[in-house]
Design a protein around this nucleic acid. Structure first.
Lengths: 326, 326
DNA sequence: GTGAAAGCGCTAACAG
DNA sequence: CTGTTAGCGCTTTCAC
């Protein structure tokens, strides 16, 4: 050990951790010894006593293929989270878990206190892990309201998807559309559920009937769902898609079916991903501040980790972005 | 503690770790106690004694934006790595480090033995971290031959980029092209360097002169580089781009410049990403087995971790895929 | 088959 | 300011 410097391990520890109360001469000697031996502290031992690891996990319950698709949700969340964690000098570890087996491993990893806190994004169904962690006293934050009732409740950051969807549909109503369909997102995800709710709420208020197909947020599923909708109601004159990618797929189907957008059918998306500006025609869509969600998640997590209380829910607003498609 | 089961901690440990030499009655009692108390072993304490964490890091020295771009390198590597690690029941933790500060943190994280092994992909310049880890006895594998001489040398998995590029250029020569330019990749990355070398080697052998512009593997840089090349030699009749994305950018520039592909100018890319099939015209390109690289990296790492020796370099072959652009 | 005891490598109180 | 002492929570001989 670094008693090569002729001091106690306590002193080495002090130097390594930057304590000021060490004589300069000793400090230099220790530093030199550390350098010479290439000494690196064992973090497992350290965290055993400090109860900290200075690292934070972001769990994405999705396959790698999905995470790296052109769905800009993931990069934006990661960017927001990184910014905040960077500033706090915490290490972000990204963990993907697309299968049951891998999710079990994630449970062991996180409950085992390998990290000081855990964030979840893109959750599916009713997931007990967040509240399990909370019960163990491990800080947790979710992106998106967790489905099901959890005990204890876990804090989350979300956008007001219900309102966002309602705004989109209201715009379609205000511009004179009569038969407004929707391509809903997956109903095991809160974003899928809420956007469908917003659509239904608004339609109900205007006593129009709802025309619904369900996709999984991907472009291909949007194209497919649009075909279904055209079969269900050939006279529809508007579609609200719960994601821009699905809206993009829908545009393709509409073109193939010979419908003009927006003349015959108006299309509104959700997310405001980059391609929304480059589709033909550019998509009217609902913008949500994903990067900010990431930042807020990280901020709340750090707050929890330092013992502060955090509010249970933080809901950010959406914004309707008007372009040519509706 | 789980002496609620009325046994020693040693026995609890045995049960939790699935030792067979525990009486059934006791085992059940312990399991029940574990269940009731929601006991979860502290992994820091465990790894302090076992010297294992059962998790493996994949370091991507890139910003989140870049990692999640439409460069399919990252998802493919991750997919390959995941497959192998999944089978070995090791937790993959993905770490991105686009800045110097974050890279320092990564150094602390990895040298501190938070993980049992470290993989690197998409390395830039001469990076001392891999050999530092190797010196500490931490298993390391790189994707792509590390630049510079390292001590000790670290094992790596790579494709034969030099040969792949040479094959591409040879194809252009064989189909009668006379003025063959290249859009090289970034010269701080081994893939950029090697593909340029392959191009130069092959041209030299055919006594044609080289016409070089440099990009950074992105689509935009390819479009830009192509403009440069057209200025440098308006009569060029072929371009080898060191990535498909750059080739895609080049196609756009060529179209804007009124050149027909492949009639006026032949274009060959590198990587065989998905869009290569959908460009206009589809790209002739060099396919490299990225998923397999990921798998091999993981396999070599696991082998190291279990004390076996691994060969220093594993070089996989590339394959020229002929499509309409050349 | 099970318990007692030692110790993984570090930090934190407490003396001095 | 620095060294000594005592664990952090687990696994692992080694007796019994």
């Amino acid at each position: 050990m670094a008693r090569r410097a002729g001091v106690s391990r306590a002193t080495v520890s002090r130097v390594v951790n930057g304590s000021t109360s060490v004589a300069e001469s000793i400090r230099d000697a220790v530093r030199q010894a550390v350098e010479e031996m290439g000494y690196v502290p064992n973090l497992a031992a350290r965290s055993l006593v400090t109860q900290r690891t200075d690292s934070i996990a972001l769990i994405l319950p999705e396959s790698a293929t999905r995470v790296f698709s052109d769905d800009q949700f993931f990069p934006r969340i990661v960017r927001g989270v990184s910014q905040e964690l960077e500033a706090a000098d915490k290490q972000l570890v990204l963990i993907m878990a697309g299968s049951t087996a891998s999710y079990d491993r994630v449970e062991r990893y996180t409950t085992g206190r390998h990290v000081d806190g855990v964030m979840f994004a893109s959750m599916h169904g009713v997931d007990p892990l967040p509240s399990t962690l909370a019960r163990l006293g491990i800080p947790v934050v979710c992106s998106g309201r967790p489905l099901g009732r959890t005990n204890p409740s876990v804090p989350y950051v979300d956008v007001d998807s219900v309102q966002g969807a309602a705004d989109a549909v209201r715009h379609l109503i205000n511009t004179g559309r009569q038969r407004i369909a929707t391509i809903a997102g997956p109903q095991d995800m809160v974003a899928g559920v809420d956007r469908l709710t917003g659509y239904r709420n608004e339609l109900r208020d205007s006593s129009r009937r709802s025309i619904v197909a369900v996709g999984d947020f991907t472009r291909e599923s949007g194209a497919q769902a649009m075909r279904q909708l055209l079969l269900d109601d050939p006279h529809l004159d508007a579609v609200f898609a719960a994601s821009d990618l699905m809206a993009h797929g829908a545009l393709r189907t509409l073109r193939e079916a010979g419908r003009r957008v927006p003349d015959d059918v108006a299309v509104v998306g959700f997310d405001d991903v980059e391609i929304a500006q480059y589709t033909d025609p550019p998509l009217t869509t609902v913008r949500q501040p994903i990067v900010q969600i990431g930042r807020e998640m990280a901020r709340q997590l750090l707050r929890q980790a330092s013992g502060e209380d955090v509010e249970d829910a933080l809901i950010l607003p959406t914004e309707l972005i008007l372009r040519d498609s509706a």
